[in-house]
Design a protein around this nucleic acid. Structure first.
Length: 215
DNA sequence: ACATTAAGTGATT
DNA sequence: AATCACTTAATGT
């Protein structure tokens, strides 16, 4: 059940997206769930019963190949929902993706049966769903572009800037290994590129930490 | 003090 | 740009 404080938080973070009436319904049927940093909240092959909304925190959505290799697709922040999940709800298929938290993250879960019902009933819902499809699509285009046309060093820079923006901090607490996995590269290569960037004065390197000079 | 894990580096493909 | 093999540095027990 949703408490008064949680209701307030929902209103604050995603309230502007929907009509009052729909918001009341959301509060009636939704559940709030919180997760620690680095927990996998949904994995490849799992069935999906809830539509998640990000209330606070951030997550990454990635894909996994047969041999366990990971590839980062896009990020989700406050007010976002997962287009892949929506798709799975409609087609009643299993998750094709993995969703991992990057921070302590709070989600609002809506049982999936409301998805279609609200599509007919509320303009704001339909609009929101279409918008989020659109923005996910755009983000995917971005990552495809990056993979196809950008060199790894440019991708790495973009990655660092994205992370910094996402966390609102110039310090990034990732190991070179984690970054390599996200960018589908190897640790040694990332270490070397980061070293180059440090020499250029773009970043400073510490153990488990990278400090950007600017965004 | 010792083990473990992260990061740095030269050589090779 | 990736991989190997090895070193060095930082951190936990």
């Amino acid at each position: 059940m949703i408490t008064k404080e949680q209701e307030q938080l929902i209103n604050e973070r995603i309230g502007f997206l929907f009509d009052k009436e729909l918001l009341d319904e959301i509060i009636g049927v939704g559940m709030i769930k919180s997760f620690d940093e680095d927990s996998v909240i949904m994995d490849v092959g799992e069935s999906i019963f809830y539509i998640p909304f990000v209330i606070s925190g951030s997550l990454k959505v990635s894909r996994e190949s047969k041999d366990g290799e990971e590839l980062l697709l896009y990020y989700m922040e406050s007010g976002d929902t997962c287009a892949m999940t929506l798709q799975c709800c409609v087609t009643k298929s299993k998750s094709q993706i993995r969703v991992t938290t990057l921070d302590e993250t709070t989600l609002l879960m809506i049982p999936m049966e409301y998805m279609e019902k609200w599509m007919e009933k509320y303009h704001s819902w339909r609009q929101y769903i279409l918008d989020s499809y659109h923005s996910r699509m755009m983000e995917l285009m971005d990552t495809i572009d990056a993979m196809a046309f950008m060199r790894l060093d440019e991708r790495l820079q973009k990655y660092l800037v994205d992370q910094a923006k996402l966390k609102g901090s110039l310090e990034i607490h990732h190991t070179h290994k984690q970054i390599a996995e996200d960018l589908h590269s190897s640790r040694v290569v990332i270490s070397r590129l980061l070293k180059q960037m440090e020499v250029k004065g773009l970043i400073k390197l510490r153990r488990n930490k990278i400090i950007l000079s600017t965004i």
